[in-house]
Amino acid sequence: MSIPAGPLPVPAAVRRATGGARARAVWVNAVGGLTFRLDGPGDATDGGADGGARFCKWAPAGAPLDLAAEVPRLAWAAAFTPVPRVLGHGADAEGSWLLTAALPGASAVTPRWLALPGVAVPALGRGLRALHERLPVHECPFTWSVHHRLAAAVGDVSALGDPPPVDRLVVCHGDACAPNTLLGEDGEAVAHVDLGALGVADRWADLAVATMSLEWNYGPGWEGAFLEAYGVAPDPGRTAYYRALWNAGP
């Protein structure tokens, strides 16, 4: 997963869905999905908080990305915490797309925040804790349980064994890697994006993945600062289990 080094072709479905807006690829994920920032036609009425900008996510057909599943999750979560507002979605033979209004803030892996991990990492921990506190477990219609994930896994899960006892049920983000938190000018978390797997699970399902992503983005040695800011002691057993489950996909 990375910020593209240069311009990328815009899929035809994205061009149709965005009404001729100027599209610039801002993110590429590991399975071929693309995210485009849009400026131009349509912004005056459909834009978000970021000066009218919009974003369009596109997933190629056959990729393990269910953009349609994100639509009801965003609609539900929006009542409790800042998430993107859906402007449209659809699919064709080549892939699927999801159009959203922009939010304030910038990804925690933009060059500014990559250069300031001492600011960004604690903000990520506080931001995830705030998300877990805001989203009401008993009102959430979605699950991200171990049973649900094992049934959908594409990798070998035979060595996983029994899951650890639940520490605390929360509504998990489902992909709490660093790029999916937006930080404001003051360096604090202001919103979350990419909630296609949002659902109820043990909080360590998020924490294990969030801390795993820190080394990818900021280098080694930041896990303790994240967990301290979140407000929890390290748990090597749960961390190892949920990282292994994550790696089994999808």
Rank of each mutant, 00 (worst) to 15 (best):
L135Y: 13
T143A: 12
H148W: 11
W97R: 02
H132G: 10
H173F: 05
P104C: 06
V119S: 09
L99P: 03
S158P: 01
A115L: 12
D194P: 06
P163H: 04
A91K: 15
W113N: 01
V166W: 03
V171Q: 06
A153P: 04
A130C: 08
L182M: 13
A159W: 02
V121S: 10
P179H: 12
P111T: 10
V154C: 10
V121H: 12
H148T: 12
V171M: 07
V170M: 02
T181I: 13
C172T: 15
H132W: 14
R203W: 11
G161I: 13
D194I: 07
G174F: 11
S145K: 02
T143M: 00
C172L: 04
V200M: 02
V193L: 13
D186C: 02
H132P: 09
A93Q: 10
V166A: 09
T143V: 13
F142W: 06
L128G: 04
G90I: 07
L207I: 10
A102N: 03
D202A: 03
V146D: 09
G95Y: 03
L198V: 13
P163G: 03
R203E: 15
A93V: 08
P104I: 09
G105S: 14
V154M: 12
L150V: 05
L198E: 05
W204E: 04
P141W: 09
R203D: 02
L160A: 04
E185H: 12
